[in-house]
Amino acid sequence: MEFRDVAGRKIRLPSLDRAELVAGAPGLRGEFDLTRVAITGSTSAGVTGEGSIAESVLSNLDLSGSRLAPLELSNVHLVDTELSNATLPATTARRVHVEASRGIGLHLVFRQASDVLAEGCRFDYATIELERVKQAVVFQGCSFREAMFLGDLSTVAFVECDLEGAEFAVRRAADCDLRSSNLRAVRGLRTLAGAKISTEQAVAIAVGLATQTGLVVEDQPAGTAPFPPGGTRHPGAT
């Protein structure tokens, strides 16, 4: 079994013997149950289906605009897969590795996510909800511009991701690691209690956080001396 250490998380990657995989057609319309298949360069845009995929590789597959629910993925590697505007509202993922794929406008709900790694993917404008997280879930080098996050982000790691303009409305975020990612213009910061950020990030988001907690941030009037660091200026003091 292959493991990957990312941001202090140990992820079990899919264990696949590609020589044993059988080339298959997409087969994702209606009910499906696919095991040990390799699907490459196929178009299933706009399909509606439900079922499971196990011990398989999907590469260069177009699933844009599709609706797959419920969907169970186990020991699956997805490469260069198009999921833009797809709807996956009831997904269970165990040992799933997603590489160089696109899910712009994707609606994805993980009922359970365990040992999930996404690398170099675009999820701009997506809505992603995690109901239950087990083991490691890591997004590395992914783009989530203007995306929405819901549910439980506990222990999830975002490694060198672009989260500019993303919105968080999560119920838990304990030990969520955001330290190496771009948090410019992120909304919903108050829901991220327990998440980890760097000192530099804390300074960068200070104004946004203050505004989101109801404070009015204004420049100091000209000619007004600030309080001395760590001290208190008493009335009448000069």
Rank of each mutant, 00 (worst) to 15 (best):
G214D: 04
D124E: 10
L209P: 02
K134C: 00
G214L: 10
A210M: 10
D162S: 02
R122A: 12
I197Y: 08
S101V: 03
T127G: 07
A93H: 09
S56P: 00
N75Y: 07
S44P: 00
G236Y: 14
S114Q: 15
L78W: 06
D115P: 11
P228Y: 08
E72G: 05
R187Q: 12
A185P: 00
F110G: 06
G188P: 00
L28K: 06
A174S: 15
A126V: 05
D177M: 02
E164C: 07
V156R: 03
L163W: 08
V138A: 05
G230V: 04
S56N: 02
S114M: 11
E119L: 13
I11Y: 08
N182I: 13
G30Q: 11
R190I: 04
L78Q: 02
R95A: 14
F227W: 12
V6I: 15
T213A: 04
V133Q: 11
D175N: 07
L183G: 03
F149K: 10
V96Y: 04
A90C: 02
S180R: 10
P89H: 10
A23N: 14
R187M: 03
E167C: 06
V217D: 08
F32R: 03
R145M: 05
A54K: 15
T87N: 02
T81F: 05
S59H: 01
P229H: 11
V203P: 00
V76S: 01
S154L: 04
S181Q: 05
K196I: 11
S74E: 07
E2A: 06
E164M: 03
S154G: 13
E55S: 14
C176T: 14
P229R: 12
V207D: 14
G120F: 06
R36K: 15
E218P: 00
L88Q: 09
L215N: 12
L73E: 03
V22T: 14
G51P: 08
E131T: 07
L106T: 02
G27H: 10
T40G: 00
S56A: 12
S56M: 09
R95V: 03
E200T: 08
A118G: 07
T35A: 15
A193C: 02
